[in-house]
Design a protein around this nucleic acid. Sequence first.
DNA 1: TTCTTAAGTGAGAATTATTCTTATTTAGAC
DNA 2: GTCTAAATAAGAATAATTCTCACTTAAGAA
Lengths: 135, 135
Amino acid sequence: MVDLKNKLSENGLKITPQRLIILEAIYSIDHPTADDIIKYIRKKHSNIATGTVYKVLEKFVEKGLIKKITTDKDVIRFDGIMTPHHHLYSIDSDVIKDYEDEKLDNILKEYFSNRELPGFDIEEITIQIKGRFNN
Amino acid sequence: MVDLKNKLSENGLKITPQRLIILEAIYSIDHPTADDIIKYIRKKHSNIATGTVYKVLEKFVEKGLIKKITTDKDVIRFDGIMTPHHHLYSIDSDVIKDYEDEKLDNILKEYFSNRELPGFDIEEITIQIKGRFNN
DNA sequence: TTCTTAAGTGAGAATTATTCTTATTTAGAC
DNA sequence: GTCTAAATAAGAATAATTCTCACTTAAGAA
């Protein structure tokens, strides 16, 4: 259990009930959309303004507490896991699964350390693996 | 200059002026949004209904003429280049640049040929490289 | 503790991107 | 040229996100 209050103050953010429950939602739901978070909170009997959720999420991204996940749908999803990892995307559905692979990360790191991209400073490399879940 | 009419009929699509000019727009604009395409067409004095553009783009994706590009904005972009390639994303702006790297593709191919992901059939692997353009 | 104030929030309107509906038009097979 | 399924236009509807502005609150200072 992460200390949510610490998480906020560490990053110079005021502690508010709204921020705490939004953080809680992010850690409870897998790659949530803003709307998933709003529903999570309302289910808990607390109300919250949609604008607040969007603004808080934006601030969290800015402060590095969470990341946006890119999808080819027109909804933005968020990810509370900040350790390096990649994503598996289902072609048939909206499911996104985390994919951690240290070995792969090392291969990429090695590859790009010997290969400058002219006119571009690399900050982060993530892999999108599209396919089908076949449980 | 690609033969746009052929491109359509090859894929079993009826040839219409709307589809031709949308294709032309895709090949003329770098990673356009639907709106970019609409503006391109209107600038050419032809009018077109927005719904038509969206529907045609969807059909093109379905038939494999173009791809959707994932961004962390809430707009969808399209890409007419179907040969395998990756993308450089600017952190500060909306600029997206193509990145082709056959050597990298081979490394990935090799790596994933020896590594089954349990419960997942890989269709396509793309890399997103985020950073800053420093021309 | 109380005061102060910048920062945060609520409520709902506004905007933007996308999808849907229905009537009309058209490409292409015959 | 006819016919029909497919495509398009126009604009309404929906969905996601942003904006505005008045009110509230967290947290540092007194």
